[in-house]
Amino acid sequence: MIFLLPAIGLVAGLLLGAEMLSPAEFLALVADPSSPMSHLVLQWRLPRVLAAGCVGALLALGGAIFQGVFRNPLAEPYLLGSAGGAAVGATVALLVVLPFSATLALPLLAFLGAWGATWLVLAMARMTGRSSIAALLLAGVAVAAVLAAMRSFLMLALSDETVSLQAVLSWALGGVQTPSWRELALLVALTGGAVVLAQSLARGLDLLGLGEGVAESFGLPVRRFVALAVLAAAFIVAVSTVWGGLVGFVGLMAPHIARWRHGPLHRGLMPRAAAIGAGLVMLCDGLARAVLPPAEIPLGLVTALIGGPFFLLILAREVRRG
């Protein structure tokens, strides 16, 4: 059932939008690809929905790795500040004239931002002497607030109030733009690579779930593995942020639902989380286009409306557990 979710999300994403389609209308459009509406759906809506699916899968994989590394069910790219770090990096790439190509600068700076922010949160949480949920979340909130302020400052100080500010703003609120087929192919390849990368970390994450001491005695080089896993998660989050902006809570919800359905072992959890994330973001992207036509509401707003209560539910459960 879980692996059907991307297909369900794809269909929902194709039917939803400023122009709502019934399944029958959709099939008629597919049968007659020469009509203008068919062109709109197949050339504009389809690549966008597929890109949204990839962004969702990436966010879910990033969240699953972070939750496994920190052994914390509330760890999530958005809450840990790594998405915020990627956003600052990307903002710099979009607004500052750099001595190298913007095509390279955007993913590179987003990755460095995500990586740096994650380590900063981890270091701050460790400074408290405990790796509790509260310490990690408070550090994440503090770092995310500082990063948001930095991003706002950069936007105010560096934008020329024309295209760049608008681009950064819409991207910061979270949203998937329609990519070219070539860009989509790259995103699909990166998402496939992310699945393989996440799967390669599965056994180590399972061992880490036994505690650092036991993981070490079962043969896992804990420090090296954690550093590698954070690097991998930062890369995955950076790719998702470059394509989808700041989209919160998907990295929290998808691994959770996968764990409920499948159990905690990461080899099975990773592909399921990716499938749930893909389906969820495709559906949310459709809703973002359909709720206030012809305007679009930011994707990040839709995921936050669904994910916020979900987060509070899990937080309440974790607090009850102590």
């Binding site: 779930g209 036994l210 505690g211 764990r259 159990g263 905690p264």
Partner: peptide, 11 residues
């Protein structure tokens, strides 16, 4: 180990 409590509820 002296203390063992897995972080996930493994079977």
């Amino acid at each position: 180990p002296q203390h063992f409590e897995p972080h996930w509820d493994y079977r």
